[in-house]
Amino acid sequence: MVKIKEIIGEHDNSNYGVQRILLALLQIVVTTSYSTVYRVMKKHGLLKKQSAIQTVLHVRMPQRKRART
């Protein structure tokens, strides 16, 4: 958690998502997984807000039923 806050604090741009933080952690030789970084950032309210377009793209469309022949 301390390393994540240091990475975010280094720059004025606070628009750091999980993938960007994970890449920065790997560059300073901290081995972790995407899910661990996501969990920590979510718990401490550090996740960036999704834009409306990203939210729409993540919505699953219903599957079409195939006609049996």
Rank of each mutant, 00 (worst) to 15 (best):
M1F: 06
M1Y: 02
M1S: 05
M1R: 05
V2E: 13
V2M: 08
K3A: 11
K5D: 13
E6F: 09
E6D: 15
I7P: 04
I7K: 03
I8L: 13
I8R: 12
G9S: 15
G9N: 15
G9F: 09
E10N: 09
E10H: 11
S14A: 12
V18F: 07
V18I: 15
Q19R: 12
Q19A: 10
R20K: 15
I21H: 04
I21F: 01
I21W: 02
I21D: 01
L23Y: 02
L23G: 01
L23H: 01
A24V: 03
L26A: 02
L26D: 02
L26Y: 00
Q27M: 04
Q27P: 00
I28F: 02
I28T: 07
V29S: 15
V30Y: 12
V30M: 04
V30R: 04
T31F: 05
T31G: 01
T32E: 10
T32I: 06
S33H: 12
T36H: 04
V37T: 01
V37K: 05
Y38V: 00
Y38D: 08
Y38I: 08
R39D: 06
R39H: 01
R39M: 00
R39S: 09
V40S: 03
K42Q: 12
K42N: 12
K42I: 05
K42M: 07
K43L: 05
K43F: 04
H44A: 10
H44P: 03
G45F: 11
G45D: 10
L46S: 04
L46P: 08
L47R: 03
L47M: 13
K48F: 11
K48A: 11
K48Q: 13
K49Y: 07
K49L: 11
Q50Y: 07
S51K: 08
A52N: 05
A52D: 14
Q54I: 07
Q54A: 11
V56K: 14
L57E: 05
H58Q: 09
V59F: 02
V59W: 01
M61Q: 09
Q63V: 10
R64L: 14
K65G: 11
K65R: 13
K65I: 09
R66K: 14
A67F: 14
A67K: 12
A67P: 11
R68D: 09
R68M: 06
R68Q: 02
T69L: 15
